[in-house]
């Protein structure tokens, strides 16, 4: 390809005019990527949406009517939120003070590396390990009985608390690392400035850190919530998938791969997406009430 551009008297070539709008060979590089997302994300989503309105009984809203009339199905929303909300809030509430402490450490890498472990190991392995560790003969119960805190083994598995603990174990590191990156993103000289102006530790947190952190914490909340919300393996492995921890993803999975009702499964997936969207919009809505700009002073 030669780089010589033909100059015509009438004005710029089509190529030059397109390039002036930012469209040239390099811009086209984005196309394969866009095609992939359109084909494998947007199209299936739309397909699922249409499919959800074509239930087996032929009516338009049959699946949605069925979902919201059967407690076995609509109850999954409540069960999912009852797990995801407290877990996400707890993780966030623990993560903030810890991030503030770790921020002061000079060697954060070892700690952050240890915390990355459960994220990479994933929910399946954590659930598998919990079966042992928290089992009636596991080290957890043994240790608590040995120091006299318990007289009989406590059973956390096969129920709400099993899933709760597994979500904290896999979710906390994620929440913590995100929070840490927001906390360390705040210019330390802002805290120094507040201190020289007479603000004590509590006032510095209230007046400086909190308002600057809220936007980031809202995003952290959303991303952590999404993780907890779409829990599947631990709800099955360490929970009570038929009852207390029958979360919405189990309902969707069963509709698709046990009843082979793809239409119903798509409907549940759409409802799942809609509920999640509501929570995310609400969280981001709270965020827009606060200052949203660079937290690093003038440098941005």
């Amino acid at each position: 390809m030669s780089a010589v551009i033909e100059r015509r008297a009438e004005g710029p070539t089509l190529r030059q005019r397109l390039a002036a709008r930012g469209l040239d060979g390099a811009t086209l590089l984005v196309l394969p990527c866009v095609a992939l997302i359109l084909g494998l994300f947007i199209y299936p989503f739309l397909y699922g949406l249409v499919l959800s309105f074509e239930p087996k009984d032929g009516s338009l809203f049959g699946n949605y009517v069925r979902f919201f009339s059967e407690p076995f199905l609509y109850g999954t929303i409540v069960k999912t939120l009852r797990l995801a909300f407290p877990v996400t809030l707890l993780n966030l509430l623990i993560a903030i003070p810890i991030a503030f402490r770790v921020r002061l450490l000079r060697r954060q890498r070892l700690l952050t590396t240890l915390l990355v472990l459960p994220i990479t190991l994933g929910t399946v392995l954590v659930a598998e390990g919990m079966l042992f560790y928290f089992g009636p003969q596991g080290w957890f119960n043994r240790a608590l009985m040995a120091v006299g805190l318990l007289s009989t083994p406590v059973s956390v598995l096969n129920g709400y608390w099993g899933v709760f603990i597994s979500l904290v174990l896999t979710g906390f590191p994620f929440t913590f690392l995100l929070t840490l990156s927001y906390v360390t993103g705040i210019d330390p000289s802002l805290e120094n400035a507040a201190a020289t102006l007479g603000a004590g530790p509590a006032a510095r947190f209230r007046e400086i850190f909190l308002p600057l952190l809220v936007p980031g914490l809202a995003i952290t909340f959303c991303l952590s919530f999404v993780q907890a919300y779409s829990v599947l393996p631990s709800a099955v492995l360490v929970g009570d998938p038929a009852n207390a921890t029958r979360v919405i993803s189990i309902a969707a999975y069963q509709a698709a791969f046990e009843e082979y009702d793809y239409s119903m499964a798509s409907a549940i997936a759409m409802i799942m997406g809609a509920v999640q969207l509501l929570v995310v919009v609400a969280a981001l809505g709270c965020r827009s009430l606060f200052y949203r700009g660079p937290a690093a002073g003038a440098k941005g």
């Binding site: 494998l40 199209y43 299936p44 999404v226 993780q227 793809y262 997936a269 999640q276």
Partner: peptide, 12 residues
């Protein structure tokens, strides 16, 4: 979350 789009994607 992957589960949400995974089900329609798997269907397709």
């Amino acid at each position: 979350p992957p589960i949400t789009y995974g089900i329609p994607l798997a269907t397709v």
